[in-house]
Design a protein around this nucleic acid. Structure first.
Lengths: 146, 146
DNA sequence: ACCAGATATCTTGATATCAAGGTATAATTA
DNA sequence: TAATTATACCTTGATATCAAGATATCTGGT
């Protein structure tokens, strides 16, 4: 089971592999999602709203890893398609809550289901225990990154 | 060691974790690399040239996962900084070989060393065997992605 | 009540990337 | 040889994102 050749476990090598794998799967994801007429970020925002309920802009930004400016234009995009709506927050008038419209809810529910099926297939090579180990290692790797 | 709660090993969940970890480390990498005055793609191109020798444009694109147009502008950028040079290929006059200038070689060698140290630190939480497992799983996950 | 600093969002200008189309060269086939 | 198809790169126009700054609002101390 042990390779005779010395294995490269340098940080930069691990990072490179991680990056490539992520990019490769991202391509699959983009293709999958674009069939619903959405971009990756827009999908991520809608998915967040679907599963976590209405959220203020800055919280969305933190979760999806986008800057406030990017979220603003993304929400503009989604609002123009009538998939989300902005509400002024009752408690804090600086803050605006983004929520799904009924049409948006239908759209993301459908897109999510399709996307989940696609990603299931994309990771079909990996066993259940392999996936579980992978998740654990990725979480360990990401701990404490500022 | 086994969680009592049922673990989510759906493809979409694994993909989401992978994406987040990758993004988080990417942020570190971007910060690290930008200290050398380079962007991520430019760094990747220079690194490829450093370690694999001069390459035609389309080969660079395949390795770094960029389109031909992106490579063109990236090479323009790097050529403007005198870090790389384009040569017409002897064998195939459609093709142009990109190679490092001496200044480019110095710049990327230095940047690479710094970046390697930064990434080493970024992944410091992960043991040697953890890294090795992670790499194996990532490669397994990426197998057979179109 | 007032002021200073923190926070939330939006606006602006710049950048990297992509998709699609264009041109030149090579390879293939008749 | 001539025509067709494939390949390699570049150009163009559009898009998403970011960084930095502007505006509005909140919070805590005086």
């Amino acid at each position: 089971m042990t390779k005779s050749r010395v294995e490269d476990t340098s940080g930069i090598h691990v990072w490179l592999i991680l990056w490539k794998a992520s990019k490769a799967i991202e391509q699959i994801a983009i293709r999958s999602i674009s069939r619903s007429g959405l971009g990756l970020s827009d999908f991520a925002i809608l998915e967040l709203l679907l599963h976590k309920g209405p959220q203020p802009v800055n919280v969305i930004g933190k979760r999806i890893l986008l800057t406030s400016g990017s979220i603003t234009t993304a929400v503009d995009r989604l609002a123009a398609k009538k998939l989300v709506r902005r509400e002024n927050a009752a408690a804090d008038r600086r803050s605006r809550i983004v929520e799904l419209t009924p049409a948006g809810r239908r759209a993301i529910a459908r897109a999510f289901e399709q996307h989940a099926a696609d990603m299931e297939q994309a990771l079909a090579h990996l066993s259940r225990t392999g996936r579980s180990k992978l998740v654990r290692l990725l979480k360990a790797a990401a701990i404490g990154l500022s």
